[in-house]
Amino acid sequence: MRKSRVTRRAPAGDEVAMEILLLAGAGIAGGICNAIAGGGTFFTFPALIAVGIPPVVANATSALSIWPGHAVSLLGTRRVLAANARRVREGGATFAVGSLVGAALLIASGDRVFGAAIPWLILFATALFAGGPALRRHLARQRRTPPPAAILAMEFAAAVYGGYFGAGLGIILLALLTVTGIEPPSVANVLKNALATVATSVAILLFALTGTIDWGAAAIVFAGAAAGGVIGGRLAARVPANALRAIVVAVGLGLAWHYF
């Protein structure tokens, strides 16, 4: 195993408590958002950077912290997965390879290149989050299915993006599944979570093997995200997804402006 890439300075005594509160709070906010409308990365990623973690490590750590959101959602969906086993196998292979390429590109690019790309990536993810529902409705009205080669290329590109950054990956996946005719939306959502789990798992494995994760920070954000997921699950019926989506979009625009 390679030496860890985590090089941030050790915080002072008073700063430790503040960092824990910030990371836990970001995890809670991210967990609530993911349980209702998605967009948890908009909270976890900037919080990790705010406590002094380098951009590449912050991104890898954020990916690990929110990974359970996709994986746990697959519990109880065995029948849907079994009925679409071929689609999961074919898409899973593409997403495994593409995510590995994206994660490798992230590590190779380094903090300078990735840091410069952060505002553009956040702006792209914000646009996806804002226009995702309308895009999916538009695609659902289309009756033409792209040729297999085009679908494979789109899935591979989405997987590379997922391994490199990942915010908004679920929206991209839902759009791709809609284009390929996966219906109803409940089935598409299960397959989306399955493919996202594959992509994130492969990326996290490479991040772990290359020492690109701050495990202490990841544990704090993970705990917060788990609590937020429970809270979000209970609030899902009370909080309008569109209202929460508007908040996430506002946060995304603010982050993009800040990093620009």
Rank of each mutant, 00 (worst) to 15 (best):
M1Y: 09
M1N: 07
V6K: 03
R8E: 14
R9S: 13
A10R: 14
P11K: 13
A12I: 04
E15G: 09
V16S: 08
V16W: 15
V16G: 08
E19I: 05
L21T: 13
L21I: 15
G27L: 07
I32L: 11
I32M: 04
I32H: 01
C33D: 01
A35K: 02
A37D: 04
G39Q: 08
T41Q: 01
F42R: 02
F42V: 05
F43E: 02
F45N: 06
A47G: 13
L48K: 00
I49D: 01
V51T: 05
I53Y: 00
V56N: 00
V56D: 01
V57I: 14
A60S: 15
T61A: 00
S62D: 13
R78S: 11
R79W: 05
A82F: 09
A83Q: 15
N84R: 14
N84I: 08
A85G: 11
V88M: 12
V88C: 14
R89P: 02
R89A: 15
G91M: 05
G91K: 03
A93C: 03
A93Q: 02
G98A: 13
G98L: 10
V101S: 11
V101Q: 08
G102K: 12
A103K: 00
I107S: 08
A108I: 09
S109M: 14
G110S: 10
D111K: 08
A117V: 12
P119H: 11
W120R: 08
W120G: 10
T126P: 11
L128E: 01
F129E: 11
A130K: 10
A130M: 11
G131Q: 05
G131I: 03
G132K: 01
A134I: 05
L135C: 14
R136F: 05
L139A: 15
Q142L: 10
Q142I: 07
A149I: 14
A153K: 06
M154K: 10
Y161C: 12
G162R: 00
G163N: 07
F165L: 06
F165N: 07
A167I: 12
G168L: 01
L169K: 04
I172Q: 10
L176Y: 03
T178M: 07
I182N: 05
I182G: 06
S186G: 04
N189F: 12
N193P: 08
A196S: 05
T200L: 06
L206P: 03
F207P: 04
A208L: 15
T210S: 13
T212W: 00
I213T: 04
A219C: 08
A219M: 11
V221M: 02
G224Q: 02
A225D: 05
A225I: 03
A226C: 10
A226K: 00
V230Q: 06
I231R: 06
G232H: 07
G233V: 02
G233L: 07
R234M: 12
A237K: 13
V239S: 09
N242P: 02
L244Y: 04
R245C: 11
A250P: 00
G254M: 10
A256R: 10
A256P: 05
A256L: 09
H258Y: 15
H258G: 06
